[in-house]
Every structure is written in C-alpha cells, then in structure tokens.
Design a protein around this nucleic acid. Structure first.
Lengths: 226, 226
DNA sequence: CCTGGCTCTCAGGCTGCTCTAAGGTTTGAC
DNA sequence: GTCAAACCTTAGAGCAGCCTGAGAGCCAGG
C-alpha cells in the first residue's frame, strides 16, 4: 500500500479530535475526522482508512454499533476503541464486537500513539494471510497470486492493486480512491496508468478461459466480483 | 543466525512481561513483547524470534491457539508455554499442540532462564538437523549445504543467510529483515553487501544446470522457492 | 611478516518495471 | 444513427533497483 497510513478519528468531543488529529498528522499520518457515528461510517466507506480511532460514546449510532456495522459489511479495518474510565463492560463488548484494541480515557497522546503504531504494524505484516475470492488466492507472505493451481507472479504495483481489490471485494472502488491508495498522489492531470495496470492484472489473473473478475463500472471505477 | 537470540514474550499481565523482559534483556537476549494472542502472532511473523515465551491464558486467541496457528503455518520456532498451577490439562494440551516445553506459574526467573537456555541450546545445535527444500539440503551440524550429491562448503555469512532462507521457504524476506537477521545492524547508509552474498550463494547452490532457488522480488526482497 | 580466506566496497552494466502516449473500441445520450 | 466521453490496448522510453567483477581491508595461522 502507499506511503502514509490513513487514520479516521471519530469522536464527538472537538477537543479530543483536534489533539488526536494534530498529533497524528505531525507523525506523518493522513487523518480524516468525523463527529458522529453516521459520519464515521460514511468516511470509512469513502476513504478506506487503515485504522479507525473510535469513541464508544457517540450521539446516535455509538461506537459499538459502528464497529458492528463495519464488520458486518466485511470491512476488516483496524479499530482502536476509546472508552471512559468505568466502562469496563464497553471494553469487553468492544473487543467482542470486533475492535482490535482499546484505550481508557483519559489517555496521554503517547499512549495512543503506541497503540496506533502497534495496530498498524500488525496490519502492515498480516499474519501469514491468504486472501481468497472465488478461485483466486493472494498469498501475502509469498507476494504471489494463484488461480486454480496456476501460480501467478506479480510486480509490486500489480500486487498493491490486487491487494486493494481483495481487501474490498464486491465493493466498487472509484478511480480516485484507487489512485490515492496505490499511487499515493492526488492526480489532477490525465494519466491512464490505472487502466494500464488493470489490464496487466486482467491478463495475468483472467487467463483465456477463466471468467472475468475485475469489472469496469463505467463512470465510477472498478469492482472485484464474479 | 546473528549474535543475540530473539525472544518473544506473550503475556497479558504487564508485571510478568516486565520482569521477563528485563531479565532476559539483562542476559543479552533481544526481547519483543506482546500482550494478546493476535499481537503475538503478528510479532512472531515480523521478528522471526528464536523462541516464544507464551502464556496459555490470553484474551482473544489463547496460547494453545497461537501455538496451533504458528505450527500450521510451518513455523518451527521454539515455544515455552506458561500455565497456571492447576491447568494440568492445558500443559498436556500445550505439548500436544506443538509447544516444546512448559513452566507452571508462579515460577522464579531462574527457572525460566534455565528452560530458555535449554531450549535455545537444543535449537542452536539440533541433533543432526538437516533442513531441506526442493533438492537442496542444509546440514546444520556440518554447516554444509548439499544439492543433489554435490557437497557445498559455505562461509559463515553464506551459511547464516542460507539458514534464514531455509527456515522460511516461500516467504518473501525483505531486505531490511535480512539485514537485521544476518548482519545485525540497522544499516543507515547504502550497502550492497546483501546483493553480493545472494550472488555468492547463487553461484554456489545454483550450478549452471540447476534451476534458480533464490528469486529476486524487485522492490521487496528475496524469496526461496522453486 | 607473509599468506590465504573472508567480508565488504565500489563503479559500471543491465534488466525489467513503471508510466506515457497515441490510436482504437465500447458505451450511452440524444 | 451520430457523437462525445470513457475506457482499452499496445508499444516503447527512461530509470530505479539489482547484478556483476574486481579488488581493498582485515584477521588468523603459520
């Protein structure tokens, strides 16, 4: 994936948002904010962050529900839950609901940063993961794809692109989003590099006979589906 | 492998982690910590330790499951399991699941150290261990490789490098990881010593006719595979 | 002090990956 | 049917990343 990890901060307290945003931005992360559960869900869908810092207590949809919905929609983004001192039950619920770690308020920024680092590191080196979709496999250890029993070598960019698709199957990824995630720049001018790489991937993973997996959605982007 | 053995300590009790970490660090080991099963698995993949000190009781994925997953992914790292006094069943389960030794809580640090030494010693000179991959063999006793029936002498660095590859076949090892494990320093400036040694190994183990075993993964590192 | 083996540096060469560019094809609106 | 926009395809230039060969520095043993 591209350079700086993306972090979504969801908290209704503007003070906490500001502190966390500034601190994380200073560390080089790209930060997006949301103040409600609904907004958090939207921004998560829009930006596909690598990590969500999520307050449990939120007006409307609370943190537990946000977690639940993200997970039930197949999103495996890392979630760091923030809980008030005595909400021990929340913490347990949070982990059960699908959060990856939690932090009790009040916390120092350094504490937060330590957890953030730990979670992102875990994500950067996923545990011997083999992603699967239909008859397509992506072996993260070997950086190798496989369809049926045919091993497929991938270049770095091809691998990054396929990884993005495999992590968000059946979800239409806009061109902008893909460009940001795989190429790491807000491309203003024209470039058809994305189309070129989609083609490279297609020719590699969709051998003559096999059905198409990466579909074009005209005017929107691409989607991985049968 | 390089100088000081790496030990991963997985326990959710910060007190135990601290005591064990300090003690082992004082003995000259390089220690990495984790507080949950997930984190333990991740750090194991990331740092490739020589030994894991693993508590059975962990929130989320427990010690038995961690062991199971490490073993099922082909990791043969030494595992020292920590169990509470009355969890006799755990101890049995632990050994069956793939742990190499166990220790009943509470224990003195000296007891722990003794087991650690024993496991690492056993691991350092595994009685007649011969690693195999494809038609390549690495005799750990003789520090000698063999392909087909041709014996191959290796220098120390060549041996360390090949050992790392043989212990993690089909896994792409990043340049940074290799540098840390074989050369033991966080190299700041530029150096192509790794490339040079890969070449030495290649010319020794990939005689003219034989197919390539150490493959370059451009932009990532190297991988041992057919 | 010399020798031989091992480690590492350096400079130049080469490969294959990335991206551009230019023309071709499909799609959907009218 | 016509047209423009969106997307596809192909070829190739440029260059970062890796490879290669030669040799300097170092240390242990004689």
């Amino acid at each position: 994936m591209s350079e700086a990890p993306r972090i979504l901060v969801v908290d209704d307290d503007p003070k906490i948002r500001t502190v966390v945003r500034r601190g994380l931005a200073y560390e080089g992360y790209r930060v997006v904010e949301a103040s409600t559960g609904e907004e958090g869900l939207d921004k998560a869908r829009e930006h596909l962050p690598d990590l969500v810092v999520l307050d449990v207590m939120l007006p409307g949809i609370d943190g537990l529900e946000v977690t639940r919905r993200l997970r039930s929609s197949g999103d495996e983004v890392a979630i760091l839950m923030l809980t008030a001192r005595d909400e021990v039950k929340d913490r347990v619920d949070g982990l059960e609901t699908g959060a990856d770690d939690y932090l009790v308020k009040p916390f120092s920024f350094e504490e937060l940063l330590a957890r953030v680092h730990a979670l992102l590191r875990r994500r950067a080196t996923p545990a011997g993961e083999v992603l699967r979709f239909a008859d397509l496999e992506l072996d993260v250890d070997a950086r190798e794809a496989r369809r049926g029993d045919r091993a497929i070598e991938l270049t770095t960019t091809e691998y990054n692109l396929l990884l993005l698709f495999m992590r968000h199957p059946r979800k239409v990824l806009t061109r902008d989003l893909i460009m940001e995630h795989v190429w790491d720049y807000d491309f203003e001018g024209e470039s058809n590099v994305l189309e070129v790489y989609v083609r490279y991937l297609r020719t590699k993973i969709e051998g003559a006979d096999r059905p198409r997996l990466i579909h074009t959605v005209r005017g929107a982007g691409y989607v991985l589906k049968e």
